[in-house]
Amino acid sequence: MNRAIAAAERPGAATPAIEVSDLTVAYRERPVLWDVDLSVPSGILMAIVGPNGAGKTTLMKAILGLIRPAAGRVLVHGRPGGEQRRLVAYVPQRGSVDWDFPTTVLDVVTMGTYGALGWVRRPGRRERERALAAIAKVGMQDFVGRQISQLSGGQQQRVFLARALAQDAQVFCMDEPFQGVDARTERAIVALLQDLRAAGRTVVVVHHDLQTVPEYFDWVTLLNVRRIASGPVADVFTERNLRLAYGGRVAFLARDPGSGPDPATSEGGRGRA
């Protein structure tokens, strides 16, 4: 928590990285997000957690400017949707990428520079160098010419992180990056995200494993159509908030459901990691 607060109080970090106000999103007039307010300081590692259908991915898409909200707005570093483009980057869900697409590591990472290039202009030597630098930052310099299906799950994630770096983004959005990767890869990705945070970037991750939230993240948003709570993990990641977000379905957090703490008396009790 302390680090997060420190980041929030750091001069220059006065404008929040992400500011969401009164955000309502509806698909076919059915609300997916109701009146969500959120203020995320820059330089933190934030998890979005909540049950299935809570609108986690929708919130992320709204931050990315991929969907038009029915009401409310999203500011990224103080700038409204449309203008904040290129400040936000995303790492797609593994399942949504066509891994057999004829493209190499360098090619994918170079795509990060397309935003700054604008229409028609082709990437040149400068873009190539920027891409190579981003690839080096994630330690993938030995795989530059590889087709993307010939990489391990962790390497694939790193390629897309490098693309975000090449984009020179300030805010990184990832949707369930740990899905289908082994434990070692998961730790490697977390280390990478922590490096990004150390470099002053903001990282937002849709996450489903409650056990690892306190270990990996310093900030958390609990979501269930409405915002249940958002803030430093130490303050917000409480059993009470989890019960609000998940209903009765957080019993698995208690070591022994039979003798677990009575929800009524365990205000502020932490979910165990």
Partner: peptide, 10 residues
């Protein structure tokens, strides 16, 4: 209906 609910929640 949706607009009314939104107003009420707001």
């Amino acid at each position: 209906d949706f607009a009314l609910a939104m107003l009420a929640i707001h």
